[in-house]
Simulated assay, not measured.
Amino acid sequence: MSKDELKAKLTELKLDTRGVKDVLRKRLKNYYKKQKLKQPIDTDDAYFDYICVIDFEATCEEGNATDYIHEIIEFPIVLVNTRTLKIEDTFQRYVRPEIKPKLSEFCINLTGITQDLVDKADTFTVVLQTAVDWMREKELGTKFKYTILTDGSWDMSKFLNMQCRVSRIKYPRFAKKWINIRKSYGNFYKVPRNQTKLTTMLEKLGMKYDGRLHCGLDDSKNIARIAIRMLQDGCELRVNERMHNGQLMTVSCSLPFEGAAIPHHPQYRK
């Protein structure tokens, strides 16, 4: 079918018509697959009740040395309800770096985070506890199944892993497994790795970036939009990466992962 024919058929079925030809074909194919299996397209069979999209911002310099220590300076969470396919709530806190408290001009220009914002912020240990309290208030891991979703591997395997060592705290249990949406997107739409950058994924899905690039909260919201579109297109987002003994591992098991319960008084400090 041509792109115009695909759009016409999707319109007839009252499905989204945005995106490149391969995306439209995949959307139509998954619709028919669900119809054949008599599964509703309203995602009532979702593996998770919620997805927490996290995209950290961290200290950086132009031309970082290989041994440069990145400290998290923005901690955002975007809460996606997988049944309504809506962003239900957001969390955002800035973080005061301790090793290099003064931000580089490059970092300020890249992230839009000013020196004043981090000077007034709490340390990472305090912010992490605040994030955990927020997740616990949402009853994630107790009443509701949830998982973490990131744009790539670095947020958890590098930034969070490194920050926990800097702050001398245990790596949080809730972040030990997650969905790397770049892998999920590439596998689902059958595209090469070089086409899984955030702005490219949005473009291929017929969407534009909304907000400021490298603002952690805005990045997280746009990643959430991609995840929602993939769910609408019939993708079963599953955990595909994890941390084990401080190392990044690929998850090959096809079974869904239920996010770890958020403890009432987490003892992160070693």
Results as ranks from 00 to 15, higher is better:
Leu85Lys: 11
Lys86Thr: 15
Leu117Asp: 04
Asp42Arg: 02
Val80Ile: 15
Glu98Ile: 10
Val20Leu: 07
Thr17Ile: 07
Asn180Pro: 08
Pro97Asp: 06
Arg165Asn: 03
Gln129Pro: 02
Asp133Tyr: 01
Gly216Val: 08
Lys120Asp: 14
Gln232Met: 15
Arg182Val: 04
Tyr32Arg: 14
Leu15Pro: 03
Ile99Gly: 00
Val20Thr: 02
Ala224Asp: 13
Ala224Val: 08
Pro192Arg: 02
Leu140Asp: 14
Phe257Lys: 00
Asp151Phe: 07
Cys60Phe: 00
Ala58Trp: 01
Arg229Gln: 13
Thr90Gly: 06
Ala224Gln: 09
Gln267Ser: 09
Phe144Asn: 10
Asp155Glu: 15
Gln115Ala: 05
Asn187Tyr: 07
Ser167Asn: 00
Ile181Val: 14
Ile148Gly: 03
Asp155Gln: 12
Tyr31Val: 12
Gly152Cys: 14
Ser2Phe: 09
Tyr32Val: 12
Arg168Ile: 02
Ile113His: 01
Ala131Met: 11
Asp233Ala: 08
Arg93Tyr: 04
Lys3Gly: 01
Cys107Leu: 11
Asn194Pro: 01
Thr123Val: 11
Gly246Thr: 12
Gly186Gln: 05
Ser2Ala: 06
Glu258Asp: 06
Asp67His: 07
Tyr47Met: 04
Ser184Met: 08
Leu149Tyr: 10
Ile223Phe: 08
Ser153Cys: 11
Leu6Cys: 14
Val132Leu: 15
Asp219His: 03
Gly211Phe: 07
Phe174Ser: 07
Ala46Gln: 03
Asn81Trp: 05
Thr250Asp: 15
Asp122Gln: 07
Met230Tyr: 14
Glu137Leu: 11
Glu88Asn: 14
Ile73Ala: 04
Lys143Gln: 06
Asp44Asn: 05
His70Asn: 12
Ile108Leu: 00
Ile54Tyr: 14
Leu202Val: 15
Ile87Trp: 10
Ile148Asn: 01
Lys183Gly: 05
Val166Ala: 06
Glu57Lys: 05
Gly206Glu: 13
Arg27Tyr: 11
Gln195Arg: 02
Thr130Tyr: 06
Asp218Glu: 08
Thr150Ser: 13
Ala227Pro: 06
Met135Ile: 11
Trp154Cys: 03
Glu241Thr: 13
Gly216Lys: 09
Asn245Cys: 13
Tyr189Glu: 03
Leu140Phe: 15
Lys3Ala: 04
Cys164Thr: 09
Leu237Lys: 06
Phe174His: 05
Ala224His: 09
Ile77Val: 13
Ile148Arg: 02
Leu15Trp: 05
Asp218Phe: 07
Ala8Gln: 11
Asn109Tyr: 00
Pro256Arg: 01
Arg165Met: 11
Arg212Val: 02
Lys26Phe: 13
Val239Thr: 15
Tyr47Lys: 04
Leu37Cys: 01
Tyr50Pro: 05
Trp178Asp: 14
Ile54Trp: 14
Lys221His: 04
Met162Phe: 09
Arg27Ser: 05
Leu231Arg: 12
Lys26Ile: 12
Asp44Met: 00
Asp219Phe: 01
Arg83Trp: 07
Glu88Val: 11
Asp151Gln: 15
Ser157Gly: 09
Ala260Gly: 12
Ala121Tyr: 06
Ile228Glu: 05
